[in-house]
């Protein structure tokens, strides 16, 4: 693994005004509280707040920054799905997986393949958090979400990442997430769509 991730996050450039209160994160946390020793996988970029948030709620928090791995593949002109090699976990392992808005940066074929993989490593009744950006307000740079003030999500530009975005209609997202059952979904004022899925 290279050190390429180090310059990827611009903490000073947070889109301060466009945060939203995440209802899905709140639901996800509540459900983790109902588990005896929850295992959680965070596939987002390394944000200290996010790690602290989930590490204090999970028995074990697994960190695997798929944004960085996708960027590596893109820069090396390798297929995006090669990044999935980093997701080697036993079947039915996780009570919760944070997919964030990762599928915004995958074509439909790869997104579906990722979701199949995520399905495999999620426990029955395990949950998946998915976010999708506003179709009508393309950000221009890759975006990730940092948690602050309990369940508030702040978009963070990852300007150094080479990840073209693919904005999708909700119907397409539900198709991609097909093996999962939709538990709740919200559209936030800033246009971000939030989904909580569960493995049946």
């Amino acid at each position: 693994m290279s050190n390429a991730s180090h310059a990827l996050i611009d903490p000073g450039q947070a889109f301060e005004e466009s945060f939203h209160e995440s209802r899905v994160l709140r639901l996800f946390s509540e459900r983790l509280n109902q588990c005896q020793a929850p295992l959680v996988l965070d596939m987002g970029p390394t944000f200290g707040n996010n790690i602290h948030f989930f590490a204090t709620k999970a028995k074990k928090l697994f960190i695997c920054d798929m944004f960085v791995h996708l960027d590596e593949m893109s820069r090396s002109r390798l297929p995006a799905k090669k990044a999935f090699q980093y997701l080697v976990f036993p079947p039915g392992h996780f009570d919760g997986i944070l997919l964030w808005n990762l599928i915004d940066y995958l074509d439909t074929g790869n997104a579906s393949e990722l979701v199949r993989l995520v399905y495999k490593i999620t426990k029955p009744r395990g949950m998946v958090v998915l976010l999708a950006q506003d179709l009508h307000k393309p950000s221009g740079v890759p975006i990730a979400f940092s948690i602050r003030d309990e369940c508030r999500l702040y978009p963070q530009p990852l300007s150094a990442l080479d990840l073209p975005a693919k904005y999708r209609q909700t119907r397409e997202i539900l198709d991609i997430m097909n093996p999962f059952a939709l538990v709740k979904s919200f559209i936030c004022r800033n246009g971000v769509r939030e989904y909580l899925f569960a493995r049946p």
Binding site: S5, T46, L61, F62, V68
Partner: peptide, 14 residues
């Protein structure tokens, strides 16, 4: 634990 934004982690935290 405290983690600064931008660190690279492939980790299990307990």
């Amino acid at each position: 634990i405290s983690v600064e934004d931008g660190a690279y982690l492939k980790a299990i935290i307990e």
